[in-house]
Design a protein around this nucleic acid. Structure first.
Length: 484
RNA sequence: GCUCCGAUGGUGUAGUCCGGCCAAGCAUAUCGGCCUUUCGAGCCGACGACCCGGGUCCAAAUCCCGGUCGGAGCACCA
């Protein structure tokens, strides 16, 4: 359109504003929560729930409650009580209050008694198979007609340990003809003999998630609940508790499930691997834990950007490593120094050179970061990547980056000046003879062994190893691969 | 099987509630160009999508019906 006067063309750069939709019914501050089960440290899957809730609390003001749902004593790893808050802190998630469910047992008992007294719950001692059979046929079990007094007495026996594991459960009456059989008369309490890491054997009757969640969502004053789609049916069940008590329902949102191809997230698998010595720890970089991403040098802001960009719709999706890496690269690149690393090195001698010296910027876009200077002397030897060297036919001219041109001649190289003349020549990295052995551990469990330039010795943190990738340098000899 | 939900380019999404400004925006990937002593960054360009079939309407990605495909849940896990 403005071809003739391109300088007058006003180009408005559209800034991508990926923001989350407004929540319904926000009147003043919001109260939200995240509720991981304490089976281990948080992984990337949890980070979505944490970030989304945190984003909204920060947008509207209010508070975010971390609720640790430790009501199944058989599935608790004590490490979680400490590690989950640390993981959240690293993510930049602001937790205003922590509620540990196993410390709130009396509240659940109280609510249970009140529902029993009102005739909304009953103690059932049917064998599970019978119970299920009856429910699927929409038939009431005989215990459903027990009087509130008898049920209160029965519940007391569950609580004080007169009944033992498996002998009785407390059931919430719902609707026996509900189309979804799992919503019909669901279990609110069961008895567990397992030792609870915080309370030992103090309690026998433990609330099921649907009961404690409903009670807490109300008592803690939740205004909005954001959680995964896998909870849609649970929401349905929990609504009965709200309705029996005439409690105001929070606004519910359920985001779609994310498939993380090839990422190891399941705590059961991780624990098995840890026990077998297959993984070095919860931060083993083959895992999808936040600890592992941290170790690889990812910045927490990457998680936030990624999940905001993914939105909150109910569509299931596949996690895009590509986009995740790209976000991280964009965030870290400008403050990441450059170094030379030569994986699988081959030694070459440069003939005909004079006093060779190298001068390479720490960051080409930021000269103020300085330069790496190397004096190599006459006819020096150095190392280059075998993959590059061997793929070039004899006689090819190539450039050793920030050093000089050479012409390949067997296993040595003829000096070919220092001027940039052939812009098409391949430019490769190199390291001097006194380079150090350096191993890069990669998330697929493999390692690359090679040589890193001496000036990287003191550096710790993520560096861009030119033409190789971003690596979190952890020690003089080892680094963890971040991404290409 | 039953209940519920969803479907926009290779990938991730915006738009769908309240139909028209959407011959569909952004990001990422790929390809090409510029720049650059990195296969990094930056800039420019190209590529590429509304699941299918009906219906309503002046007008449908958006509403309705049917189909297909995919997902979640399914009862002493959370």
């Amino acid at each position: 359109m403005h071809r003739e006067f391109p300088e007058f063309e006003v180009r408005e750069k559209k800034v991508q504003v990926h923001s989350l939709p407004e929540l319904r019914n926000v009147n003043g501050p919001v109260v939200m929560r995240m509720a991981p089960s304490p089976s281990g440290p948080l992984h990337i899957g949890h980070s979505r729930m944490a970030i989304l809730n945190d984003e909204y609390v920060k947008r509207y003001g209010g508070k975010l409650i971390l609720r640790i749902e430790d009501t199944n004593p058989a599935n608790i790893d004590p490490i979680a009580y400490e590690q989950i808050p640390r993981d959240l802190e690293w993510l930049g998630v602001t937790v205003h209050q922590i509620a540990i469910q196993s410390d709130r047992m009396e509240l659940y008992y109280e609510q249970a008694r009140s529902l029993i007294a009102a005739g909304h719950a009953y103690v059932c001692s049917c064998v599970p198979e019978d119970f299920k059979r009856k429910l699927s046929a929409s038939i009431a079990c005989p215990h459903r007609e027990t009087t509130p007094d008898e049920n209160l007495e029965g519940f007391q026996k569950m609580v004080d340990g007169t009944f033992s594991q498996g002998e009785a459960v407390l059931i919430i009456k719902t609707d026996l003809s509900h189309p979804n059989p799992s919503v019909r008369d669901w279990i609110a309490f069961r008895i567990s003999d397992a030792v609870h890491p915080r309370h030992g054997r103090e309690y026998h009757a433990y609330p099921m998630m649907n009961f404690s969640v409903a009670v807490d969502d109300h008592l803690l004053g939740l205004t909005h609940v954001i959680r995964g789609k896998d909870h849609i049916n649970n929401t349905e069940k929990q609504k009965y508790i709200f309705s029996y008590n005439n409690w105001k329902l929070p606004e519910y949102y359920h985001y779609g499930l994310v498939d993380f191809p090839g990422v190891i997230l399941k705590t059961s698998i991780i624990k098995k691997g840890l026990a077998e010595g297959k993984y070095s720890g919860w931060d083993d970089i083959r895992l999808g834990t936040l600890l592992a991403f941290k170790k690889r040098g990812f910045t927490p802001e990457t998680f936030r950007k990624y999940w905001i960009q993914s939105g909150m719709r109910e569509i299931d999706s596949e996690f895009s490593v590509e986009i995740f890496n790209s976000i991280n690269k964009d965030l870290i690149d400008s403050r990441t120094p450059r170094y030379f690393y030569v994986p699988n090195p081959v030694r070459i001698k440069i003939n005909g050179g004079m006093q060779l010296s190298g001068k390479a910027p720490y960051h080409p876009s930021y000269p103020d970061m300085g330069y790496r200077m190397y004096s190599l002397g006459d006819d020096p030897s150095l190392f280059v990547p075998a993959a590059d060297w061997n793929s070039l036919p004899d006689g090819t001219e190539l450039r050793l980056k920030d050093l000089c041109n050479v012409k390949k001649s067997g296993s040595s190289a003829e000096f070919a000046g220092t001027a940039m003349k052939d812009r098409k020549a391949r430019i490769i990295q190199w390291v001097p003879e006194n380079a150090r052995a350096f191993t890069v551990h990669k998330p697929d469990g493999t390692q690359d062994r090679g040589l890193i330039e001496p000036l990287a010795e003191k550096y710790r943190g993520v560096a861009q190893l030119e033409r190789y990738g971003y690596v979190n340098i952890a020690s003089e000899q080892t680094g963890f691969f971040t991404h290409p």
